[in-house]
Computed example of a mutant assay.
Amino acid sequence: MDDLPCEIDPRQRPGRGASRNQTGRFERHAWVGTHDGWEIEEDLPVLRTEVREEQARSLITYNRSPDLPFDRSINPYRGCEHGCIYCFARPSHAYLGLSPGLDFETRLVARPNAAAVLRRELRAPRYQVAPLAIGTNTDPYQPLERDRGLMRACLGVLADCNHPVAIVTKGTLVERDIDILAPMAAKGLARVGLSVTSLDATLSRKMEPRAPAPKRRFATIRRLTEAGIPVRLMVSPVVPALTDPELEAILEAGAEAGADAASWIMLRLPREVSPLWQAWLAEHYPDRAARVMARLREMHGGKDYDARWGHRMRGEGAYAEIIAARFRRQARALGLDRKVSPLCCDLFARPGQAGDQLSLF
């Protein structure tokens, strides 16, 4: 379906990352835009963010991936208005019958009963506590959260039962929840990972059109750490021949802001992300497109992406080894290579509900 005309006029997509809206891979029929034949000039409608609600039947998702540091996660939202063109979660929108392209960042799904379902699942007698990850697929602090508050409601449930949580975000809205996160962090129950891809505000705005500016994210790191909430700086993703020269400078800025650890991930282009990324490169950085893709293919055996466990996050070969060595050297010099303490699981108490018998102790 990638050969079908799915490019969207730039006038219709201001502030968006993707330029295409190709039909999802599971659909039998493709939707394409075409001229209606009438020679009448009309203003093209600008794509607006649409939100529909979904009543979740379950919330905690488990994984057995050996290259992930967690085995469970939740997502209060589907899709993400930040619109990061490189987002590896874009292909998940195809499961909803929507496009991983512009649909992913304009047709969002909110799960209003997320907190209630989470509470129910944590109450289950067979539930065994372990750190819960939030933000590993779509950002829980995307603009939609300001109005919906689903992430805050879920945090409230976790705080009530002393459940450990690890959050990944680009959103500065996480500052709103310091009142919940700081007491949790004091008990060893909470940690935040904040992602920064580039220090260049212009590049960031093109690549992550509705995410906060880089300087604003470093200010968020500072606010969180001053409140006693440990923050990991995530240099993610590293883009060959585009953002990789900034690696050391990003780490230095993160250390100055108060981050106590750091990590990095190479750019990943699974499924529909590759054609979306290459269209973005052709539009914004045509002079670097061939070089960027050549470096990526060098790390993946000639392919745009190799999803093998133990390989997909970093790639392999000389270039990947150079990036890894640069990261290790700078992280060590800045004290960001330390092993962080595991989140506490010993305080967990299953959440109660109306009608429960009160404890005597």
Rank of each mutant, 00 (worst) to 15 (best):
M293W: 10
I180H: 05
E39G: 12
R350Q: 05
R13M: 09
C87W: 00
P112A: 04
L47R: 14
A253H: 13
C345F: 08
D356G: 04
S204D: 09
A289G: 04
S341W: 12
V340D: 12
A255C: 11
A56Y: 03
Y141H: 08
E316C: 09
R191W: 11
A94C: 03
G97C: 04
R52F: 04
I265V: 12
V165H: 07
L181H: 04
A259F: 05
R72V: 07
L360I: 12
P270V: 01
M234H: 01
W38M: 14
V196N: 00
L47C: 11
T225G: 04
R57K: 13
P91A: 07
L347T: 08
P245F: 11
P76C: 11
A116P: 02
Q22C: 15
Y86L: 02
L96H: 12
R52C: 08
G171F: 05
L122C: 07
P245D: 13
D177Y: 00
A227N: 01
S65M: 09
Q278H: 14
A185P: 02
Q357Y: 06
I229T: 04
I322H: 14
C80G: 01
A354D: 12
P125A: 09
I229P: 00
G83S: 10
Q22Y: 13
G188M: 04
A30P: 01
L47K: 12
E27F: 08
S204H: 14
I40L: 15
A201E: 15
P275M: 06
R90W: 06
R146I: 11
K303S: 13
K206L: 15
R123C: 09
G193P: 00
L247A: 01
A279R: 10
F104P: 02
T197P: 00
N162G: 08
R288V: 13
T220Y: 01
G37E: 05
Y285R: 11
V235F: 07
D9N: 14
A30V: 05
G15T: 10
P275W: 06
P164V: 08
S92N: 05
P275N: 07
F218A: 03
A307F: 10
T220S: 12
C344L: 12
P91K: 08
L96R: 10
L155P: 06
D179N: 09
A320Y: 00
V231C: 08
G352L: 01
A333S: 12
F361C: 13
C345H: 10
P143R: 02
L242F: 06
D160W: 01
S236Q: 07
P5A: 08
V117H: 07
K303Y: 11
T23Y: 00
K303M: 12
L360H: 14
R107E: 02
D337A: 03
A124P: 11
D147G: 10
G33L: 15
P164T: 07
Y305E: 02
I74S: 03
Y285H: 15
S274R: 13
V235Q: 00
A116K: 09
P275I: 09
P351R: 00
E321K: 06
R191C: 04
K206Y: 14
T197F: 03
C161R: 01
F88Y: 15
